[in-house]
């Protein structure tokens, strides 16, 4: 562990500090968006968006490497696929409620498959594992600026529209009777989630973004008394998981993204077990 702190202040290893900063900034997104995704029970939608992103990354890498489009960064392809899949999922959820799960799962599978196909045809070697499971050492200063901007936007929207957000997540039909634009809120959540997925996939990877959007919020949900306290608790937990994951991955020479998620998952399981035992105990006393 001490080695990690030494590396943090070592001027020759800025990527270690960038990784910690990325963890700090992504904790805000994981905490805020994760809580909303959890209480609205749309983790499946976020999962479909995050997996469809691989199609965009593969497409951008192929177009760039084959010379069809010069210097097309993978993040632009990811952004395109994330926004398009968010809009399709939003439209299907709101307008065509029948077969909603089929369309969502189809997007999930088609996005990933397109990514694999594009990567297979990309000249040279393109390792999909780096995108699926992330590599925090790839985080650049530009990524940090984008993450900070998305943090500010998400924090502002959550603060300004908190009562409407809470009402639409709690009881959407009632929220509509109070003239709250529940459909707009839903689409905004999906698009923010899509943007977050694009930025966060560098850190923990496509597969694990969905885990970090649900595990800290799910753990905070065991004691939270309000959506706001759930958001705050999830942000703090995300930060703790990230820091402990980074430090232990450095000490054990293991992939950082996977370590963060394993720690978050273990804590969630412990809290689930404690909660189940408590519930059982209170039923027996009754």
């Amino acid at each position: 562990m001490a080695d990690y702190f030494i590396a943090l202040v070592d001027p020759s290893m800025p990527f270690i500090r960038n990784a910690l900063l990325a963890g700090l900034l992504s904790s805000i997104l994981f905490g805020l968006l994760g809580s909303i995704v959890t209480v609205k029970r749309i983790a499946g939608l976020a999962g479909a968006i995050s997996h469809a992103v691989l199609g965009g990354i593969g497409m951008a890498l192929y177009l760039s490497a084959s010379g069809k489009v010069q210097n097309l960064p993978p993040i632009l392809g990811a952004l395109l696929f994330a926004i398009v899949s968010a809009i399709i999922i939003g439209f299907v959820s709101l307008k065509a409620k029948q077969r909603e799960d089929t369309v969502i799962n189809a997007l999930w599978a088609i996005g990933m498959s397109l990514g694999v196909l594009f990567l297979a045809k990309t000249p040279g070697y393109a390792d999909p594992t780096a995108y699926l499971f992330g590599n925090i050492l790839l985080v650049t200063e530009k990524d940090l600026v984008l993450l900070a901007l998305l943090d500010v936007l998400t924090l502002f929207l959550a603060w300004r529209y908190y009562p409407q957000l809470e009402a639409s997540a709690f009881d959407e039909d009632f929220a509509k009777t109070r003239s709250i634009a529940t459909d707009h809120i839903f689409i905004a959540i999906l698009i923010l989630t899509a943007l977050a997925v694009v930025l966060l996939q560098t850190f923990v990877g496509i597969v694990m973004v969905i885990a970090m959007l649900t595990l800290p919020a799910g753990t905070a949900g065991f004691w939270a008394k309000s959506l706001a306290s759930m958001m705050t608790g999830a942000c703090i937990l995300s930060l703790l998981f990230t820091f402990s994951g980074l430090a232990s991955s450095w000490a054990l020479d293991l992939p950082a993204g996977a370590m963060v998620v394993v720690i978050a998952g273990a804590v969630f399981l412990v809290f689930s077990a404690v909660s189940a035992v408590k519930r059982r105990g209170s039923r027996v006393r009754q």
Partner: peptide, 18 residues
């Protein structure tokens, strides 16, 4: 499992649009 108090639920009735 939605984390919300009785007073917050009741106050939702005071909301009017965005």
């Amino acid at each position: 499992a939605f984390p919300i108090s009785v007073s917050r639920v009741v106050s939702m009735g005071r909301l009017k649009g965005m």
